[in-house]
Design a protein around this nucleic acid. Structure first.
Length: 558
RNA sequence: UGGGGUGUGGUGUAAUUGGCAACACGGCAGUUUCUGGUUCUGCUAUUCGGGGUUCGAGUCCCUGCACCCCAACCA
């Protein structure tokens, strides 16, 4: 991967890795991991972390694994592990070994907890969550010590074993690390290591009644796997001292993993918090986790975003410690760049208007040759049937053209792509004055799209033969949230939802070759944009992203 | 309120670690074109404020300000 200037990636993480390697810190080894919690689907923000973790391993001859951080049975489910596996594979990354699970380390974690207890560094607290929270103190105010903090090692061991054996109710007791209730970093005020949960776990079933917290599980899991660089997002910065504290108290080799934090990815006009995404799905605002308006990986995939474009975007934006929100337009420019090079061109009329060629020989069908992708001659050409009755785009005809309008208008000659020059001779309107049929004559000399006398036209338009067209639907998407930063006005992002974020056109006319498009295939509708064939519904297309549209800009400026 | 983190064009990311502030997206003006797409060219605009050190500061020092994170038995 390279940055925008085509240079190898460089950032503070790579610099740090290079230093560690140069100083032989981990015996010259690099190992990362991507540690999702299986309680939701992956989104574009995860793609940034994934790209970092895996590309880093590629660059430094290291390895990267996938580890499910499944320490909380309340919310986790195998549905999500399957989904995450699918999404990761789609992105094109292959973990070094089969998926790993923090839950596979529960036994080891438990033993280490007993070790800490034996060393007088952990204790069982009988108080409830609220009491513990109150005693923790606040910013600037020291906490107070739990009355159970001075329990004997033996009593702690006994209680902890009985917690494990399921003797107590949920919430009745916790195991806490004995660190410092006065510490200025709240994370170090005797954090909870284990809580009692009688919920079945998606992998360990009902074998455990106690579950490790994130802090107690994460660093140790890293150590068990041999992770050298544990990359996570900025909000874990204040947890790093705790990460290091646990590792330093356990019988481990001295080269313990090193946690480094970077800023998470935020995008304009969307949200990436799991809670908010779940709300959009559950409240029926979108159609499901793979709704093309969502920034989920499955949503983007259905929308037609190429995995390559997503990865290039993630590499390009780099990694830093500054919170920032990238413009969605940048992602879209990567998508266009990729699709422009790869997508096959098709002619599709979204809002059909009848065009009758009055001098066309009655009943004649003429196959004209059009290019599949001008960016890639190897993709060849195809034949498209041309007849005397066609559909053109409603927007491509104006009875009364505004300035700078180059398309079809009475008396004007334009080119029908790959076919002929036609000149508009008249049109019909309905009672509302909307054109219903346009009439034109064609010039037989211009077959193939060029005039032997060298005369030029200002516009080339797409078309389909009425007799041969296949009909279908197209979903046109706007941004899900109209505000750049949803929620800036009222504090609630949901207030910025665009109620019209999707427009579905059901009377689209497609050139016949589109009947053969594979599910999920992404093509360019000439002059309109890139469209992804729905994976399940034949001839339903999702607009991935429009083409850059100068005419729209001219109109906007007025 | 204590601790930690971060401030570079409209947006994001760089700057050989003290030496001409650059790249991309966007915008604007052209060019090319059988897509008002693509290509190509040009233009546009940046170091949070105030002091200081220095021949020279985005970079070092002092100070102020703004924003983000931390007081779950979530991750």
């Amino acid at each position: 991967m390279t940055n925008g200037a085509g240079e190898p990636l460089d950032d503070f993480v790579r610099e740090l890795v290079r230093d560690d390697l140069a100083n032989d810190r981990f015996g010259g080894r690099l190992q990362t991991r991507f540690p999702p919690e299986p309680n939701g689907y992956l989104h574009i923000g995860h793609a940034k972390a994934i790209t970092l973790d895996f590309e880093l391993a590629n660059e430094f001859d290291g390895i990267c694994n996938l580890r499910f951080d499944d320490t909380n049975p309340d919310t986790e489910d195998t549905t999500y592990v399957d989904g995450i596996l699918e999404d990761l594979e789609w992105l094109g990354y292959q973990p070094h070994v089969a998926p790993l699970y923090a839950s596979d380390y529960f036994e080891q974690l438990y033993e280490w907890a007993e070790h800490l207890i034996s060393e007088g560094m952990a204790y069982v607290d009988d108080q409830d969550a609220e009491t513990i929270s109150d005693q923790r103190g606040g910013f600037g105010q020291p906490g107070i010590e739990s009355p159970f903090r001075t329990r004997s090692v033996d009593e702690n061991l006994d209680l902890f074993r009985r917690m494990r054996d399921g003797e107590f109710d949920e919430g009745a007791r916790v195991l806490r690390a004995k660190i410092d209730m006065q510490h200025e970093n709240m994370q170090l005020r005797d954090p909870v290591m284990y809580r009692i949960r009688n919920e079945p776990h998606h992998r360990t079933g009902d074998r455990w009644h106690i579950y490790p917290t994130y802090d107690w599980a994460h660093g140790q899991s890293d150590a068990i796997e041999g992770v050298t660089h544990s990359l996570c997002t900025l909000e874990f910065d204040s947890h790093r001292p705790l990460y290091d504290w646990y590792l330093s108290k356990l019988p481990l080799p001295s080269d313990t993993p090193r946690q480094t934090e970077f800023a998470r990815l935020e995008l304009t006009h969307t949200v990436t918090s799991k809670r908010r995404l779940a709300a959009l799905v559950e409240d029926g605002i979108v159609d499901g986790w793979d709704d093309p308006r969502l920034p989920t990986l499955r949503g983007l995939r259905r929308r037609g975003y190429p995995a390559e474009a997503i990865k290039e975007f993630c590499s390009y934006i780099g990694v830093s410690r500054a919170n920032s929100r990238h413009q969605i337009e940048l992602l879209e420019s990567f998508v266009r760049q990729h699709l422009n090079a790869t997508a096959q061109r098709k002619m599709a009329v979204l809002n059909p208007l009848r065009l009758v060629i009055t001098n066309w020989p009655e009943g004649e069908v003429n196959e004209v040759e059009v290019v599949n992708n001008p960016e890639n001659p190897d993709d060849g050409t195809r034949l498209v049937p041309f007849t005397g009755e066609l559909f053109i785009e409603h927007d491509d005809f104006r009875a009364d053209p505004p300035p700078k309008y180059f398309r079809l208008t009475p008396g004007r000659e334009v080119r029908l792509r790959g076919a002929y020059f036609v000149t508009c001779t008249g049109f019909d309107v309905d009672d509302a004055g909307t054109p219903t049929t346009v009439y034109a004559t064609y010039d037989p000399e211009t077959r193939g799209g060029n005039a032997p006398d060298g005369r030029k036209v200002k516009s080339t338009m797409h078309w389909v033969s009425a007799e041969h067209a296949v009909s279908g639907s197209a979903a046109l998407y706007e941004r899900l949230f109209s505000a750049e930063v949803p929620g800036t006005e009222t504090g609630d992002p949901m207030d910025d939802l665009d109620p019209n974020s999707v427009t579905t056109l059901d009377n689209c006319m497609f050139e016949p070759s589109m009947a053969d498009l594979a599910p999920g295939e992404v093509v360019q509708f000439e002059r309109l944009g890139y469209f992804a064939h729905d994976p399940r519904t034949q001839l339903l297309f999702h607009r991935t992203v429009g083409l850059r549209d100068e005419w729209a800009r001219i109109q906007q400026r007025g």
